[in-house]
């Protein structure tokens, strides 16, 4: 989906992109996956089928919006949403909104998941450390993450730091919880096997535990990424002067329903694109480390 949808922001080929998102998709499949012709065909079919509902929705949307059943200030037409996008693009602000939001998500996600992985490794591998830290981390996890917003604002001001920190908190917990638990549940028989063949410490970790938790790590990263986008919007809704969350608030206050729709669609696409990127990583890693 990625290449096509990214092009949706370029003004040159609007109809081509909106009405026939299928065409380029086959090429969008990375070479590693589209290895054999049969696989490529299956992928082609999957993309064609996957595109059916979006196309139907767009057609339905266009039909309802132009039928006069719903007032245009409540439901814009697809074309007016497109036009709003082109307008923002031409003023040079669309790119800024998208870029800053993506940057916040990626940085926050990276920080949160790395800290999550490190803590999960420490807590998951040592019973004693787990007994020391797990209850506290469990309690922190019970705090609804948005409750941190005012505190983060107070401590870190209103620049990039509090937003990135909030996203990092959102990304941290899925990774920490899933990976720590996966490490605790690595097959004790395999660990003993490694030990009995003279492996211990880091060597045992890389022989048994790490490969065993690869699937859990990946699925936790996917969850964390979804959380990161969620907390991005939450953070930007509550105070920002740039970014997609800000664009939502701004559009609402100015009655720009077309921009509201545009932003929601953009968030969906960006989330899907980053998720697909992790999905490609997942297929690669599972091929290597899956059972």
């Amino acid at each position: 989906m990625s290449t096509v949808r990214i092009r949706a922001v370029s003004p040159s080929n609007e109809l081509h992109v909106l009405e026939r998102p299928v065409v380029d998709n086959v090429e969008a499949v990375p070479a590693a996956i589209s290895g054999s012709p049969r696989r490529r065909r299956r992928w082609g079919r999957a993309t064609v089928l996957g595109a059916v509902i979006p196309i139907v929705l767009i057609v339905l949307w266009q039909t309802i919006a132009t039928s006069g059943l719903v007032a245009s200030y409540r439901l814009p037409t697809p074309l007016s949403v497109w036009a709003a996008g082109v307008d923002l693009y031409e003023r040079g602000v669309l790119y800024q909104h998208v870029a800053i939001s993506t940057q916040r998500v990626l940085v926050g996600f990276a920080v949160g998941s790395v800290v999550g992985l490190v803590l999960a490794a420490i807590v998951g591998l040592s019973t004693r450390v787990s007994e020391l830290f797990a209850p506290t981390l469990g309690a922190l996890r019970a705090v609804p993450s948005l409750a941190w917003v005012p505190l983060l604002g107070l401590y870190l001001g209103y620049g990039e730091d509090p937003k990135v920190a909030l996203i990092a908190i959102g990304a941290f917990f899925p990774v920490y919880t899933t990976v720590a638990s996966a490490l605790r549940h690595v097959d004790a028989h395999l660990v003993e096997l490694g030990r009995s063949y003279g492996y211990s410490g880091p060597a045992l970790l890389s022989l048994v535990q790490l490969p065993a938790v690869v699937p859990a790590v990946i699925s936790s990263l996917r969850l964390a990424l979804a959380q990161a986008w969620l907390f991005l919007v939450a953070g930007e809704l509550l105070g920002a002067s740039l970014g997609l969350g800000y664009l939502l608030v701004d559009s609402q206050q100015n009655g720009r329903i077309d921009r509201l729709f545009l932003t929601i669609i953009l968030l969906g696409l960006l989330g899907k694109i980053t998720d697909t990127a992790v999905g490609v990583l997942e297929r690669f890693l599972l091929k290597r480390w899956g059972s």
Partner: peptide
């Protein structure tokens, strides 16, 4: 009693586990 093979390694690479470190 259980073979205790590492599922992500090939047969060859599983046998290698038994080699001296």
């Amino acid at each position: 009693q259980e073979p205790r093979l590492l599922p992500w390694r090939s047969i060859t690479r599983n046998v290698e586990v038994g080699l001296p470190r």
